[in-house]
């Protein structure tokens, strides 16, 4: 299952974290995945005007446009409203976690292990939440 060819948009203001997420995905066996990077939500929305992606992995706390605002914009447009989104955040406030979980397809709390990200990806593939 890991050899499926996914296009994944990684949205994080920290270039090191974008690299870590991509490396983790590759390490988990999704080495065929094509990665696209964005610095923040605004940049991600711009990219999605011209690219089709299977999955978005997004940080919440970003300058310019954060993850929550980006998801609100994605849900407003039919072309992007069904893209599965894994949100990655240090958020620990339960009401906020509930809100983020409700808005996205899956939520990962930082710090996270490679295995956790792999499990989340596999679960989305099994549930066919990712249309490939």
């Amino acid at each position: 299952m890991e050899n499926v060819k996914l296009t994944i948009l990684v949205v994080d203001d920290c270039s090191v974290m974008r690299f870590v997420v991509q490396r983790t995905i590759k390490m988990c066996g999704f080495d065929q995945a094509k990665m696209i990077e964005a610095n923040n939500g605004k940049e991600a929305l711009k990219i999605l005007e011209t690219h089709t992606v299977d999955l978005i992995i997004a940080d919440i706390n970003m300058p310019v446009m954060g993850g929550i605002e980006m998801i609100e914009h994605l849900k407003e447009t039919s072309a992007t409203s069904n893209i599965p989104i894994i949100t990655v955040s240090t958020e620990s406030n339960q009401p906020r976690v509930d809100l983020i979980t409700e808005m996205s397809t899956s939520f990962i709390h930082k710090p996270f292990s490679p295995e956790l990200l792999r499990d989340k990806l596999l679960k989305l593939l099994e549930k066919k939440a990712i249309n490939i």
Partner: peptide, 9 residues
């Protein structure tokens, strides 16, 4: 990024 994670938690 490490600072962000420690602070957030």
């Amino acid at each position: 990024e490490i600072a962000n994670i420690i602070c957030g938690n």
